[in-house]
Simulated assay, not measured.
Amino acid sequence: MPMPQEYQLASQHYESFLTAAREALHLTTRNQTYTCVQATLLVFRHRLTAEQILMFADTLPAVLRAIFTSGWSIDDFKPEFGDEGDWKAEVKAVRVDHNFSNDETPARVAAVLRQHVDLPRFEKVLQQIGPDALRFWGFEASARI
């Protein structure tokens, strides 16, 4: 069996995502962009159970999946999902000395990510996780439950 295209084209897909995210975040470097994307993914990951992490990771392109799962520990889990204010503050607090995130970062990363995933599959998994997950990634939860 040949190598799946998802892996053959992983770098190209990631570069496309990173370029779109850099533009949406109004940043100048790949490193700045990476930190904002990583922070957003990690803040979301902390709110998921192990099973939910695996379900969500499976919806992501290969390199983003690796970023999302890298360094994961079961001890990271936060039982309270929090609200948008919590998410924004936590995104800004990740690697604070190297982080260019602002209050718009989670929503802008979410908008770009939605353009780089299989959207119906992505939304279906978020529905299984719950309304807070839908809101985190920019879906109106009340209309879909």
Rank of each mutant, 00 (worst) to 15 (best):
G71Y: 02
Q127D: 10
R45S: 10
A107G: 06
E90M: 05
F77L: 11
L113D: 01
S11H: 09
R22P: 04
A39M: 00
A133F: 09
R22G: 01
K92C: 14
L9K: 15
L18R: 05
V109P: 00
I67T: 09
Y34W: 09
A10H: 08
S101K: 00
V91D: 00
S142C: 12
A133S: 12
A21F: 03
Q127S: 14
R114E: 01
G138D: 02
K88Y: 01
Q127E: 13
T69P: 06
N99T: 06
N99Q: 03
S142T: 15
T49R: 10
A107V: 03
R47M: 02
A20G: 06
F44W: 07
E15R: 14
F17M: 04
D76K: 02
R95M: 13
E123W: 03
A133V: 11
N102C: 07
F68I: 04
V117N: 01
P131S: 15
G130E: 01
M55P: 04
L41H: 00
I129P: 00
I145H: 12
D83L: 08
A39F: 04
F136C: 06
S142E: 15
S101M: 04
T59S: 12
P106S: 08
T69C: 12
A10D: 08
T35L: 10
L27Q: 02
H116V: 05
A20P: 05
P4R: 12
K92R: 14
L18F: 06
A111M: 08
L41R: 00
M1A: 15
T35F: 08
D86R: 10
P106L: 06
F77M: 10
D103R: 07
A66I: 13
I129L: 07
P79C: 13
G82D: 12
I53E: 05
A50Y: 11
I74L: 15
L134A: 04
E80H: 09
F68E: 01
D75K: 15
E6N: 11
T28V: 11
L42K: 12
R108G: 01
L27D: 03
M3C: 13
S101A: 15
G71A: 07
T49Q: 08
V112W: 01
A110P: 03
H46T: 13
F56Q: 02
D132W: 08
S70E: 14
A107Y: 01
A66S: 14
Q32F: 03
R45N: 11
T33E: 03
R95T: 07
D86P: 02
E15K: 12
H98K: 13
L113T: 00
R47W: 09
R45F: 07
E90G: 00
Y34D: 11
F81H: 10
A111W: 08
L42V: 07
R47G: 07
R47A: 02
R95I: 10
D97E: 15
M3R: 12
D86W: 08
D103N: 10
V91R: 05
L126M: 04
L25K: 01
D75N: 13
L41P: 00
F17G: 01
W137K: 01
T49N: 02
D132I: 03
D76Q: 14
L18Q: 14
H13L: 11
Q38E: 14
L25T: 00
F81A: 10
D97P: 02
L119C: 04
V117I: 06
